[in-house]
Structures are given as structure tokens and as C-alpha cells.
Amino acid sequence: MNDHSPRARGDRPERAPRDGSRARPQRDNHRGGSGRPGRPSRTDTQGPVGERRSSGPRAANRDDSGNKPVAPAIDDDVQASDLDRDVRSRLRTLSKDNADGVARHLVMAGRLLDDDPETAYLHAQAAVRRAGRVDVVREAAALAAYRTGRFAEALREFRTVRRLNGSNEHLALMADCERGLQRPERALALTQDDAARELGPDLQVELALVAGGARLDLGEPDAAIATLRGAQRHARTGEHRARLDEGLRDALVAAGRDDEAHALGTRPDDDEHIVVFDLEEDHPA
């Protein structure tokens, strides 16, 4: 299952989930995000907020005795084949029936992650109970926990994924979880991890957004400004540039540099310079 207010205002760093449903949260907002994972989510520099929980009937996950976890219902139209092929291949260690059941829960988790993250979380947990040693299953659990504000749980799951497959792609989300747990120093340490230097430009932007937010959490707006400006060279898309600009505006305001923040906010977007020509000419019949 790929991450920016990171926990605040419901946004997340961008990372689209490999859920196979193709209903990816690009945008990742990555709180950071996402998401998105959980919409896409985007990570900005706002401070963290507390964990969110749903108390509604769809959040129920136990039988009438209150003991045994009960898997949430799967939509009738969901098939195991809806899951991305490369993700399905990671389920080959399971029996066919079990793999199909896990795949369908993963599809449901991806389908619901944006609109009903609490139920997506329940589907991810159902998949974990059936295939807890598969990295993509634990990744789904991590993303769903992150999107529902269960930051301690999400951090544990992301660490498990890292142990299982050796990937560092979730460093920004892990750091954002530390922000959500009100531990900005640990968040900064993760963004400065040696492994972070080897990540691609997109993830460098995600790391910078989380780091900038952590600097603001610590009351260091000038450091946040330097971090975000330093990441501008990695911004390859208009979305990344816009997110960095948004974070930079927050940092400038926090530093008392309102004029610079206003100037940044009034800068025209790239899209405003695009002129569309209709090349189809009308010819009389």
C-alpha cells in the first residue's frame, strides 16, 4: 500500500498505498499527507494534533462477547484480482484461500482509506491477523493506523515493514509519527538518518516538510525556513513546489517576516501562465 498540518488539519506526507484498488490517496496527502497515504496527503508545517478515533458502529471490531475480533464486511464487488499484481505476488507464501481473503481486505483498506479510514484500519487489521509476516500487509496496517491518528502503532508497524523488506521509503511518515507523538527531536533525527540521503527527490521533499514542521514545533522558525528553502531544488512537480511554499509561508509568519510570507503567497502559480489553444478548426460541411 505509498505521504503533509502533518497530523494537523488532517493532512499527511505523500505515499500512495499499494492496495491494488487504485484508489490511491495522492495525496499523502504523506499528513505529511496522505495520504495523504491517507489523501493524498500532504505534509505541511503545522503542529501535531491528538489521535482520532471513531466511536460509530462501523468501528466495532469484536463479536457480541467482546472477545474475538470480527473481520469487517467486504463489498460484494471486491475480488482478489483487484489487488496490484506486484502486491499479490508477495502473498504467494500463503495458501490460495488465505491469500485471496487477505487480498480482498487489502483492496477494501485501499478503497476506504480516504473516505472512511477507521473502517480501512479494521480491514488492515483483519489482513494482519491472517498474514502478519508479509511486508505489504504490515505496510497497509501502518498506513491505516497513521491515517487514523494512531501514531505510536503506525510507527511500530513502519519499523516492522523496514525490518521485513529493508526499505527506507517510509522515513518521512515515521518522522511525522514522532511529531504526532509530540517528539519533534526524534522526528528530526529520522529526517537526518544516513539512509535519508539516498532517497529520491520526491521523498526528499517529504522529509523536508516534516523536518520544517518539527523545527516549528521546537520554536525554530529560521531553521525551518532554511530547511524548506534547501529542499526547493528537489521539487520536481507543481504540487511539491506549492507544498513547500505553503510550509515556507507558515515558517516566515512564525519568524515575524510577514511581508516575505505575503509576497510568497501572491506569487502566481505556474498554471496561470498556461495558454490553451484549440487547434481544431471548424470547416463548413
Rank of each mutant, 00 (worst) to 15 (best):
A254I: 04
N61Q: 15
A242E: 09
G33T: 07
R15S: 14
M108L: 11
N61L: 13
E280I: 15
N29I: 15
N168L: 03
R7V: 03
L164M: 09
A60W: 13
D28M: 11
D64V: 12
A189T: 15
V253P: 04
E198A: 10
D250H: 03
V136F: 09
V210K: 00
D282Y: 14
R129C: 11
D19Y: 11
Q79M: 13
L203F: 08
L209E: 01
L181S: 06
A235L: 08
A208Y: 09
A254P: 04
A211L: 01
R18I: 14
T227M: 02
F277W: 14
H262W: 15
A187Q: 01
D75Q: 14
R130Q: 10
R243H: 04
L113I: 11
K96C: 05
A242G: 07
R215P: 00
R243G: 00
L264H: 06
L112G: 01
L248E: 10
V102M: 05
R186W: 03
D135L: 07
R229T: 02
D86M: 02
A131H: 05
T237R: 02
T227C: 06
D82P: 03
E220Q: 09
R39Y: 06
D44F: 04
M174H: 04
H240S: 08
P184Q: 06
I74S: 07
A255C: 09
D114Q: 10
R241N: 08
V87E: 11
E198Q: 11
F158M: 06
A23V: 14
V136Y: 09
P17M: 09
R42I: 05
E206C: 04
D193P: 07
A127Q: 13
S5P: 10
D84H: 13
S5T: 09
P48W: 04
R129V: 12
R186Q: 15
G238P: 02
D193C: 05
P72L: 12
E198C: 02
D63N: 14
T227R: 07
A126C: 12
A16E: 13
L199E: 14
A8T: 05
